[in-house]
Design a protein around this nucleic acid. Structure first.
Lengths: 153, 153
DNA sequence: GTAGCGAGTTCCCTGAAGCAACTGACTACG
DNA sequence: CGTAGTCAGTTGCTTCAGGGAACTCGCTAC
């Protein structure tokens, strides 16, 4: 994304943007998630420059979001898969999708639907308080200093 | 973020990135959320270039994430506040925070803690299936074509 | 009348993104 | 055998957005 490196900030949002916030990166992860695992597939789907795609895939592998797996020896061919870290990031993508469906989709409705295999129904991401289970609204929380902050003070 | 405009893609993630995915934008929204409402406060907190900050604030107001409110008439002074749309986006920021706390915070622990006023406890964002309430994992969902896709086909 | 603040704007410079063409290892077709 | 095609990138050129610092404008305080 950025000239300024966000990774050094004492902020989990900034540090997350450092590994997944560069331009195109969230869309690349989405593509790998939904089954575009190969270079040319992703390139064609997104219309991204090949140079930038090669760059992003490299840093995503370096930061442990993806693994590069050889699926053919002759000729050597590679594909990309989500790691556990990458899969968990996709829950963020699902909340982004839920927000986008609500605020940007308009009359036409959501471009994609998510079906939860657990219950078999169409669903969207619902963000809740990990303690009481009620919906978590940004205007109903207080932000306090945590241990990771003090360690640096 | 980007040369390429994501807003035209038929994808809620891309459309969300179009309004909130440019470099610095998520951090600016976080700042406004936690109480940095004024230009110089945000600029000092983030160390962002004043030009880019002015730019981002303008587009955030245009896209309805923030409102620019005059809090002094003489001299004219303004501050920024989240709209409903902007507040709801902060739930995305909370899931990003939860992911970053888990995968990037390391030994020191999370830089900030979130206290849910509803139950009074420290909490993090928990993403669940809107239908059955179970945790929503990216590897346990199927992605299907939605109405917004077909409308464009 | 000088200093200072808040909210920006203007300027120049560098570096990242876009685009197109090229490479290299191989397979398939006629 | 020669040509075309696939896949996974790399290279080179150009342009435009971000970084940084200085400047502006309206006003207040000393």
């Amino acid at each position: 994304m950025q000239r300024t490196q966000f990774g050094d900030m004492i902020c989990s949002i900034a540090r997350t943007l450092d590994v997944a916030g560069e331009p195109w990166t969230p869309l690349i992860l989405r593509d790998v998630w939904v089954g575009f695992n190969r270079f040319d597939d992703i390139q064609r789907d997104l219309g991204i420059s090949r140079k930038v795609l090669a760059d992003r895939l490299r840093t995503l592998v370096e930061s442990g979001m993806l693994v590069r797996r050889q699926y053919s020896e002759r000729p050597p061919r590679y594909e990309y898969e989500l790691t556990e870290k990458g899969y968990e990031f996709c829950t963020v993508l699902m909340t982004i999708t839920a927000w986008g469906d609500r605020w940007t989709a308009g009359e036409a409705g959501p471009p994609v639907l998510i079906r939860h295999r657990g219950c078999g129904q169409h669903a969207h991401a619902d963000v809740r308080c990990s303690h009481c289970g009620e919906p978590l609204r940004a205007d109903e929380v207080d932000v306090e200093e945590g241990p990771g902050q003090r360690a640096h003070a």
